[in-house]
Simulated scan of single mutants.
Amino acid sequence: MVSAGFLSGLFGLAVIIPSFTVMTRRLHDSNRTMVLAIVSHISGLIALAATVTFVVAILAAAGAGSTGMLGASLMAGAFGTVVAGVVTLYTLYVLVKPGDNTANNYASGGSCDIAPEVQTQ
């Protein structure tokens, strides 16, 4: 949000709640809890924290001439990025997968449930 600019930051704030609710609705259609939506939104913060750790460690290692801290920060950055990537790919897989045809814990039917037609007289 800081590097994107003011209008992009406002847009990001405006769409975070609708995107979260749509993702939660889709997860409920496939009989899953909203925990995956929370983890998916937090995974971006994990990658950001890993990147910040990496940059700070590089600056500290450059000032001190130490290579041990650089290797540790590289591992932390790679680990955070891999975790965020795996969570994103799994979330995408779950969201693309068809919903349940049967009733689930969150509604009377899944996303593929077809309502009966009402006959008018």
Results as ranks from 00 to 15, higher is better:
residue 38 I to Y: 13
residue 6 F to Q: 14
residue 80 G to E: 01
residue 35 V to F: 08
residue 118 V to W: 14
residue 57 A to D: 03
residue 64 A to L: 07
residue 121 Q to V: 15
residue 86 V to G: 08
residue 11 F to R: 14
residue 98 P to W: 08
residue 93 Y to D: 09
residue 117 E to R: 15
residue 89 L to D: 03
residue 85 G to R: 06
residue 119 Q to N: 11
residue 83 V to S: 05
residue 27 L to F: 08
residue 102 T to K: 14
residue 47 A to F: 02
residue 86 V to Y: 10
residue 89 L to I: 07
residue 64 A to N: 07
residue 106 Y to P: 01
residue 23 M to V: 12
residue 79 F to K: 05
residue 27 L to R: 04
residue 71 G to P: 00
residue 78 A to T: 06
residue 72 A to M: 10
residue 30 S to I: 12
residue 57 A to L: 02
residue 89 L to P: 00
residue 69 M to F: 10
residue 85 G to L: 10
residue 56 V to K: 14
residue 18 P to R: 13
residue 96 V to L: 11
residue 34 M to T: 12
residue 93 Y to C: 06
residue 80 G to R: 04
residue 6 F to L: 15
residue 111 S to Y: 07
residue 26 R to Y: 07
residue 113 D to W: 13
residue 51 T to D: 00
residue 44 G to T: 03
residue 62 A to I: 06
residue 6 F to G: 11
residue 42 I to R: 01
residue 23 M to G: 08
residue 30 S to C: 13
residue 47 A to S: 10
residue 89 L to H: 05
residue 1 M to R: 01
residue 91 T to R: 02
residue 99 G to D: 05
residue 76 A to Q: 01
residue 38 I to A: 13
residue 73 S to A: 13
residue 49 A to R: 01
residue 20 F to G: 01
residue 90 Y to C: 02
residue 84 A to M: 08
residue 84 A to D: 03
residue 76 A to R: 05
residue 32 R to P: 02
residue 44 G to E: 02
residue 29 D to I: 05
residue 83 V to W: 00
residue 119 Q to P: 03
residue 33 T to E: 04
residue 13 L to G: 08
residue 86 V to L: 14
residue 90 Y to Q: 05
residue 60 A to P: 03
residue 51 T to V: 09
residue 27 L to S: 03
residue 9 G to S: 13
residue 39 V to S: 10
residue 36 L to Y: 07
residue 97 K to P: 00
residue 116 P to R: 13
residue 103 A to T: 14
residue 29 D to L: 08
residue 28 H to R: 11
residue 99 G to N: 06
residue 107 A to C: 10
residue 102 T to D: 14
residue 63 G to P: 00
residue 25 R to E: 04
residue 16 I to N: 11
residue 117 E to P: 02
residue 120 T to Q: 15
residue 61 A to C: 12
residue 47 A to I: 06
residue 46 I to Q: 04
residue 114 I to C: 06
residue 20 F to E: 00
residue 110 G to S: 07
residue 5 G to C: 10
residue 67 T to E: 12
residue 87 V to Y: 01
residue 117 E to Y: 14
residue 84 A to S: 13
residue 87 V to S: 04
residue 9 G to F: 11
residue 64 A to G: 03
residue 33 T to W: 01
residue 117 E to G: 12
residue 117 E to H: 13
residue 51 T to E: 05
residue 26 R to D: 06
residue 54 F to I: 00
residue 49 A to F: 10
residue 42 I to M: 06
residue 3 S to W: 07
residue 86 V to W: 09
residue 73 S to H: 02
residue 29 D to V: 02
residue 109 G to T: 04
residue 24 T to Y: 09
residue 56 V to S: 12
residue 4 A to N: 10
residue 24 T to K: 10
residue 116 P to W: 12
residue 118 V to K: 14
residue 92 L to Q: 03
residue 97 K to S: 08
residue 6 F to E: 14
residue 11 F to W: 15
residue 107 A to M: 09
residue 50 A to V: 04
residue 60 A to L: 15
residue 13 L to F: 10
residue 64 A to V: 07
residue 69 M to H: 01
residue 26 R to K: 05
residue 74 L to D: 07
residue 118 V to L: 15
residue 33 T to M: 04
residue 21 T to G: 08
residue 94 V to F: 12
residue 46 I to L: 13
residue 24 T to W: 08
residue 94 V to Y: 09
residue 49 A to G: 12
residue 21 T to N: 11
